[in-house]
């Protein structure tokens, strides 16, 4: 592929100091005070997500107050969240594997803000919890509760606190949170 490139003087290395950078910063006042014209709108989109083969079963089990994973015979992993295929071996998983509703805190945070940066008085305590009965390092994201935020530690043993059976609906929130054992 040809390119028309007339011989031209070498672009001179001008150095940072002589370069002019564009871009006009607006202050909050200018934006919110109507000094800059803006239009606004919100997308109208609602979704109904299918839970799928593996997570569908996972949700059914949650409703019964149980955690379940899947087992891949090829790599010998018991996985949670469960999947109907093993992403390492790229083959179908072989069996369902009942798990305990206890585990170990792999990592956690104490979050004092909402997603839109509003302050929370009491922190939310998201954590990755390695579930007992699954392969080492197999965790799920959930929340911690019934614990002083200052006392939360990595390595802490925790147990699921379930909603009462008649309030469970087949959702990850059927576990209210995990609390120290």
């Amino acid at each position: 592929m040809g390119i028309k490139l007339t011989e031209r003087p070498q672009a001179q290395a001008s150095g940072m100091e002589t370069l002019e950078f564009k871009g006009t910063a607006l202050s909050d006042e200018e934006f919110k005070g109507g000094k800059v014209v803006t239009v606004s709108g919100a997308p109208n989109a609602q979704y109904g997500w299918d839970a799928g083969v593996a997570i569908g079963r996972f949700l059914h089990e949650l409703k019964e107050g149980r955690l379940i994973g899947t087992f891949c015979r090829s790599c010998n992993r018991i996985m949670v969240p469960p999947r109907m295929f093993c992403e390492w071996c790229f083959r179908n998983t072989d069996e369902w594997a009942p798990l305990k509703d206890t585990g170990v805190v792999n990592t956690f945070s104490l979050c004092y803000v909402t997603w839109d940066m509003k302050r929370l008085k009491e922190p939310e305590m998201p954590a990755v919890i390695e579930i007992d009965g699954a392969s080492p390092g197999m965790g799920i994201m959930h929340l911690l509760g019934e614990v002083d935020p200052k006392k939360v530690q990595i390595g802490m043993k925790v147990r699921a606190v379930w909603k009462p059976a008649d309030e469970r609906e087949g959702a990850i929130t059927d576990i209210k949170y995990f609390k120290p054992m």
Binding site: Y47, W49, L59, T107, C111, P126, H142, I154
Partner: peptide
């Protein structure tokens, strides 16, 4: 975040950074 297993917990993006940073520190 996963629409079935994570989003019902009300996550925000800071969580994953905080979880990673804490694990790295620990």
């Amino acid at each position: 975040f996963d629409h079935t297993t994570e989003r019902p917990l009300g996550p925000n993006l800071l969580w994953i950074f905080a979880l990673e940073m804490n694990r790295y520190m620990h």
